[in-house]
């Protein structure tokens, strides 16, 4: 920190300390709004996880006992593009194995994020169609997938390619954000310098309030879940 910033720091904190002491002497009473009690609200019945995710515009694939090649074929079918597709995946044993299986499917080419971003930047921006990441936590009532970028699965994997595939069939399902924050957040923060809560494909309503998908991030997000997580029987 340079001297200027140091001086500003002292000045700001000194002023705030004075203000804080004054505030302590004269504690303002917060006027909270009058409470309205509501008995039962039929509107507030929560959606199932699948419905919530679909409402948020995720494309959901449900698997039961399928093998990895079967799951990957189901994803390719969901993507439903006749042109050749270029995938980008992370590193580590699980991703290596996915890459091997993807290469065997028609018209699919898979690459790995195995060099610094600077080296791969042009190709990630220009050539990659699909980024694949895993997800360990899903939040039911907001339809949110928690993405934890790491050395194996970098930040831009889930961000730059126009299609994002999230493998979440082993994820823990939390009822609400409150639950996730109470149980998981501290540990996640220690391990990850970036955490992303994804609740829909990238979108905007900045032009005359008309909703458009694919603003700057992925236009399509495909999520793989297991039937146990959906608990729909």
């Amino acid at each position: 920190m340079n001297t200027n910033s140091q001086n500003a720091r002292e000045k700001i904190l000194e002023r705030l300390r004075l203000a804080s002491r004054a505030a302590a002497r004269k504690k303002p009473d917060i006027q909270k709004k009058e409470r309205i009690s509501i008995q039962d609200n039929p509107l507030s019945k929560p959606l199932s996880l699948r419905d919530q995710l679909q409402k948020n515009r995720f494309e959901v694939i449900v698997v039961r006992n399928e093998t990895l090649p079967q799951i990957l074929s189901a994803i390719v079918e969901e993507i439903d593009e006749s042109r050749p597709l270029s995938w980008l995946l992370g590193n580590g044993a699980v991703n290596n194995s996915i890459v091997d299986h993807l290469q065997k499917i028609d018209r699919q080419t898979a690459h790995q994020f195995d060099q610094p971003f600077e080296t791969l930047k042009d190709s990630i921006f220009n050539d990659i169609d699909i980024g694949l990441t895993h997800c360990e936590s899903v939040i039911k009532n907001t339809g949110t997938l928690v993405i934890q970028p790491s050395a194996d699965e970098p930040r831009t994997l889930s961000l730059i390619p126009p299609i994002h595939v999230i493998i979440a069939n082993k994820a823990v399902v939390f009822d609400s954000l409150d639950g996730y924050f109470a149980q998981e957040i501290e540990l996640s923060l220690i391990e990850h310098s970036n955490l992303i809560f994804v609740s829909s494909p990238s979108k905007t309503a900045d032009i005359q309030q008309k909703l458009a998908y694919g603003a700057h991030g992925p236009k399509r997000v495909i999520v793989v879940l297991s039937d146990q997580q959906l608990n729909e029987e």
Binding site: T142, N194, L195, S202, K203
Partner: peptide
């Protein structure tokens, strides 16, 4: 209900 992205940077 929630935005598309909530980004926590540490």
């Amino acid at each position: 209900e929630i935005t598309s992205y909530v980004n926590l940077i540490s």
